[in-house]
Design a protein around this nucleic acid. Structure first.
Lengths: 208, 208
DNA sequence: GTCTATATCGGGATAGAC
DNA sequence: GTCTATCCCGATATAGAC
């Protein structure tokens, strides 16, 4: 389908720029002009590769959603103890969000604004969700029956892990306001949390 | 300045509708037409009361931000033990977000997209922030010196509280996907968390 | 204060040359 | 495959009657 020389290249440039702009401003706030100039081309070419803003967005969103979910799934499905999963989930979330600023917020924002259309799109990527969550639940229940941790709902525990790891990123502008953090303080804070969150969680659930 | 009979009334209607629409779709996604029709009037009248979309938005944002922050501040400044503060903060966040769906996400989204302009606007409301946070820190440090809890950074603890209370709302569409929750399951889950989160936190920090 | 009608403009999309 | 020029609609904003 693709033929000429710099074809694949340009498409990648567009997707890259589009990912950045959509992530920064959301679908409604993004301008095709901005995407074009950030990709070093003009608007017409965007429409040549992807017929419409919607199509372009859909492509970007699908990719970014997969990007967001894949690490979580991999860790949950791995052969790891619960405590190791917790550590790795936190570590991965913090690393991933740090190198992809705005990703988590982007996903959440678009899902919030497009309940209908995007949710089924996200659903494609989600055929692994139930197995992933079952794997996590299994780890939790195993530790409970072995008497290593107190009884907790796997759902709640998973949400607690995600909350504490992700919220500082989606809420960054507010937090840096309230807590008067500049960029470097924030970075240090993130490193600190990579150890602190797993400790915090394990302290809470471990039987002593 | 305001004179005729239904004056205050209409203004309130507009602000109400605008708050709903902006909260639902964000500034960029909101349409003046939608706000007008939801207020039961027409577009022209919006511009009569508030000169532009920006002005209207600014008014709404200011109010909603205050709304979001006030409860948190009040609790932190109250004469309460740390554990009581934790319970009340969680309870308040869950109640507040439940009756104001989308509020937290709205605030965070607009702050994310408008780093420059809105952050200073939020700053107005924030002259209480440092005293609020100092009050919370004092509570934490008191419990530490009394040997009731293990040493924890007040910043981290506060963020943990907020994270676990707020994230389920901002991330609701994603969570209900991954965890296959319908609306009633979600509501039950929230009630459960009102008790579970404080327990989870206190279990983690209390010395036994 | 509230409406209808209209001006104006930004931005998504297309046509057509190269 | 990439560009320039243009179309066209949607949305903000204003004018002016009532």
């Amino acid at each position: 389908m693709k033929s000429k020389q710099s074809d694949k290249n340009t498409e990648a440039l567009i997707l890259d720029a589009a990912a950045r702009v959509f992530t920064r401003n959301g679908f409604a706030g993004a301008r095709m002009e901005e995407i074009a100039s950030e990709a070093g081309i003009n608007r017409a070419l965007l429409h040549y590769y992807f017929r419409s803003k919607e199509k372009l967005f859909e492509t970007v969103f699908r990719a970014r959603f997969a990007e967001f979910v894949q690490g979580i799934a991999a860790i949950n499905l791995a052969e790891l103890s619960l405590f190791e999963k917790i550590e790795k989930l936190v570590d991965h979330q913090i690393n991933s969000n740090r190198s992809n600023p705005g990703l988590a917020h982007f996903i959440m924002h678009e899902l919030n604004c497009n309940p209908e259309s995007l949710i089924q799109l996200a659903h494609e990527n989600s055929r692994g969700f139930s197995t992933m969550f079952q794997a996590f639940s299994a780890s939790v229940n195993e530790e409970i029956t072995q008497g290593n941790i107190r009884p907790v709902k796997p759902t709640s525990l998973l949400i607690n892990i995600m909350s504490m790891s992700i919220f500082p990123f989606t809420g960054k502008p507010m937090l840096s306001q309230i807590l008067k953090m500049d960029q470097t303080t924030f970075e240090e804070f993130l490193d600190y949390r990579k150890k602190e969150i797993p400790e915090f969680i394990i302290q809470s659930i471990r039987k002593k």
